[in-house]
């Protein structure tokens, strides 16, 4: 280990990477199960996003605190126990706060435990970084995940029910696209968002390359290597 990550300072990127550059859903394609299953309304998406963020924050904070105590050989087992604990806690809390939300999210609260984003963060970040860095990064990741869920949830609720957060947007005569509330709708909307993100990234890259190539040959090679990815 050339650089000791423990001593890295907190930069804006520590927080922002989860929202944009390493967005767990749109870039890393992690946690697809809740992304597809519970985003049929904004409220469900928000509840799921917040629950996941809570588990992410708590479990990664604990992993970060215990990173020197947990032996390498049993780290995954230890992370799983920690994550499962907080998932159970969240399960009880949601059940106590609102029966409606609990029923709407169903088994997907318990399934947060298998959201690979959380274990991935514990392994890749929390186990090597200070508590403060971990908290900032996890919060960014959680917010990024919540935003992604909201992106899907808002489109699906808008098209599937003509409403946002339960308030009708298009009026009474709107014909809802039922399929958007059904599982296939999740796949369609996710695909559309991924397309948008891929396109944004590509055009960004193209601009960068054009700028880099400009001094040598007048920008001729602008988009040449886009498809090489």
């Amino acid at each position: 280990m050339a650089i000791k990550p423990d001593t890295q300072p907190i930069t804006p990127d520590t927080f922002l990477s989860g929202i944009w550059r390493e967005n767990p859903v749109f870039v890393m394609l992690l946690g697809m199960c809740p992304v597809l299953a519970v985003t049929n309304s904004v409220a469900n998406a928000l509840a799921m996003g917040l629950a996941t963020t809570f588990v992410l924050l708590c479990s990664n904070a604990l992993v970060s605190l215990l990173r020197r105590q947990i032996p390498k050989e049993v780290r995954i087992a230890a992370y799983i126990i920690i994550i499962a604990t907080f998932v159970t806690v969240v399960d009880y809390l949601i059940h106590a706060i609102s029966l409606e939300v609990y029923d709407a999210l169903g088994a997907f609260i318990q399934l947060i435990v298998v959201n690979c984003m959380i274990l991935g963060r514990a392994e890749a970040f929390a186990s090597r970084n200070r508590l403060s860095n971990t908290l900032v990064n996890s919060l960014g990741m959680g917010i990024g995940f919540t935003i992604a869920l909201l992106c899907l949830g808002s489109v699906r609720e808008l098209l599937g029910a003509g409403a946002l957060l339960g308030y009708p947007i298009f009026g009474q005569s709107f014909e809802p696209w039922i399929i958007m509330l059904l599982p296939p709708g999740g796949f369609f909307v996710l695909a559309a968002w991924l397309l948008l993100f891929a396109w944004l990234k590509e055009s960004q890259q193209r601009r960068k390359q054009a700028a880099a190539a400009a001094p040598q040959n007048g920008g001729k090679l602008g988009g040449a290597s886009i498809h090489a990815r």
Binding site: L66, V74, A78, I81, T85, Y92, H95, A96, I97
Partner: peptide, 27 residues
């Protein structure tokens, strides 16, 4: 290590369970 973590987890889960039980029943 694993035993200690499990013990703490168990304690946390049980205390949250006890805390939320009346609320859940009431809901």
């Amino acid at each position: 290590t694993l035993g200690l973590i499990s013990l703490c987890s168990g304690l946390l889960v049980v205390s949250v369970f006890e805390f939320t039980k009346p609320y859940i029943a009431e809901n």
